[in-house]
């Protein structure tokens, strides 16, 4: 049984090694999820003992790259939660459109599907030219993929349905060209994106934004870490700027939440 080979103490040993040797701090991640990722990787790579696994993670740089890729969950979609994108299109971006210049941070962007969805909205609202999207993630490998703007073609049917549901009216296929099993998205979309690694646990605020999207990242963090990250965002959002979270995440229990006002039913808050 994969879920029993590694116990809680061993998880802690391993994560302490990772912090000391590689500088990545996963100690405040939700325990059950990170443990599941670790046991999954342990089984996947057929280690014979925990000691061997621990030693490899600690000493083998190449393997640690894989560890980082597999421990983080990089699943994502274009126009995931169509009603969220509809709210961005109708209620948030038009307000930002009144600014001379729009700076957006997509934190935990994974392979870029979210950033490209956003760029499509901005383009359709004629705002892309004056926008800049900073897309960051802890995992350098997903950023390499995101930069290419190529997504598996077999997902595109779903994405175009999501797009239509989110209020899109164009023919979605005009945004990409099919290339074997991949859809390559228009370079005009990525021309306004800056990709960079950024660790929400340990890195600082690096700019001021009018909109920050951080969706389905905070579910992996424990409450204290969530609050630290909210403070980081608070330091990175202009007054009257917006913060958007995933459909199951909330600002509610954060002590400074009173300084933010929720927009309609969506997980979008405006800084007062």
């Amino acid at each position: 049984m994969i879920s029993e080979v590694i116990d809680n103490e061993q998880v802690e040993l391993l994560l302490n090694d990772v912090l000391e040797t590689h500088g990545y701090d996963f100690l405040e991640y939700s325990h059950a999820s990170i443990k599941r990722r670790i046991t999954r990787l342990y089984a996947l790579d057929s280690f014979v003992s925990f000691a061997e696994f621990r030693y490899t993670v600690k000493t083998d740089k190449q393997y640690f790259k894989r560890f980082l890729e597999e421990i983080t969950v990089n699943v994502t979609e274009m126009f995931r939660d169509p009603s969220f994108y509809k709210a961005l299109r109708n209620d948030v971006l038009p307000v930002l459109g009144t600014y001379p210049f729009i700076r957006i941070w997509v934190a935990g962007c994974s392979t870029g599907e979210e950033a490209f969805s956003l760029a499509i909205l901005l383009k359709e609202l004629n705002l892309l030219n004056k926008s800049l999207i900073y897309a960051t993630d802890i995992n350098p490998s997903v950023l390499e993929k995101a930069k290419k703007g190529m997504f598996p073609l077999n997902y595109l049917k779903q994405y175009s349905e999501n797009y239509l549901q989110s209020g899109g009216t164009k023919d979605f296929s005009t945004y990409y060209t099919a290339n074997y099993s991949l859809a390559k998205f228009d370079e005009s979309l990525s021309s306004k994106m800056i990709f960079s690694t950024h660790n929400l646990v340990s890195d600082h605020s690096f700019n001021e934004f009018q909109l920050i999207l951080c969706r389905n990242v905070l579910i992996y963090f424990d409450k204290d870490l969530q609050h630290k990250v909210f403070n980081l965002f608070d330091n990175s959002i202009e007054n009257l700027g917006y913060l958007a979270l995933g459909s199951k995440e909330s600002l509610d229990f954060w002590p400074k939440a009173k300084g933010y006002k929720r927009i309609k039913q969506e997980k979008i808050w405006r800084k007062l």
């Binding site: 939700s30 325990h31 999820s33 969950v73 699943v75 389905n216 579910i219 992996y220 199951k248």
Partner: peptide, 12 residues
Amino acid sequence: EEDHSISLDYSE
């Protein structure tokens, strides 16, 4: 979780 709280996970 150990403290009987719920964690959600958007993995494979």
